[in-house]
């Protein structure tokens, strides 16, 4: 079971959807880890014949099943960062009418979404579906460093080492949630970390 129901939250928090087939001559799909399942759920031979599919396994093993979809182009990238130059190159050739499908963690979808918006595609051309890990991409409000894949609250900033609590406040530009010092008013009093949605 890789679908997670996010609790209702504040208005800056993104809301993810469910992928569906859209008509169009060009399709770009980016699937990270269990996001592969969302692609497998909607794939049809006709759709995939017009699709550039990028898969970032993050330790999962969907490559063979995805390859078997016979997409127009298929690329397996070792990480989002490694795939980024390729994603940008694909978006460079973009014309109006391109349909974009993003599925996987919030961190990947948020970052890819901001790449797509940068080239001027309307947000209506982007579909998203969350699958897999509920970890968050966090920006430390103090040192500005990004810590990827944060699963617990509070957590330690990977850059400055402060203990941060996980806010629901979200920036699309940074594709990240905000982390704020948890023991600023009582140094050293850091609660026991627990899962973000526990």
């Amino acid at each position: 079971m890789s679908k997670f129901e996010f609790p209702k939250s504040i208005t800056s928090r993104p809301v993810w959807g469910t992928l569906e087939v859209r008509s169009g001559e060009h399709h770009l799909m980016i699937a990270e880890a269990e996001g592969a399942e969302a692609i497998l759920d909607i794939a049809t031979p006709d759709l995939m014949a017009k699709t550039h599919l990028i898969y970032i396994p993050k330790g999962t093993g969907y490559a063979e099943r995805l390859r078997a979809l016979n997409s127009a182009q298929f690329y397996e990238g070792p990480s989002y960062e490694a795939s980024l130059q390729r994603i940008r190159r694909v978006l460079e050739d973009t014309h109006m009418g391109l349909q974009v499908y993003l599925t996987g963690t919030e961190g990947m979808m948020g970052q890819a979404m901001s790449e797509v918006m940068t080239v001027g595609l309307p947000h209506t051309a982007i579909q998203t579906e969350h699958r897999g890990s509920v970890a968050r991409r966090m920006q430390c409000v103090h040192c500005k460093g990004i810590t990827e894949d944060v699963e617990v609250d509070p957590f330690v900033c990977a850059h400055c080492g402060l203990n941060l609590f996980v806010r629901d406040h979200y920036s699309r530009r940074h594709a990240a949630y905000q982390g704020v010092c948890v023991d600023a008013e009582d140094h050293g009093n850091v609660p026991e970390p627990k899962g973000i949605y526990e």
Partner: peptide, 17 residues
């Protein structure tokens, strides 16, 4: 509130908290 974090947000987003 942090301008660096909130820049680019719409009215409802930056007031979200």
């Amino acid at each position: 509130w942090s301008l660096d974090f909130d820049i680019g947000m719409n009215f409802f987003e930056w007031h979200a908290p």
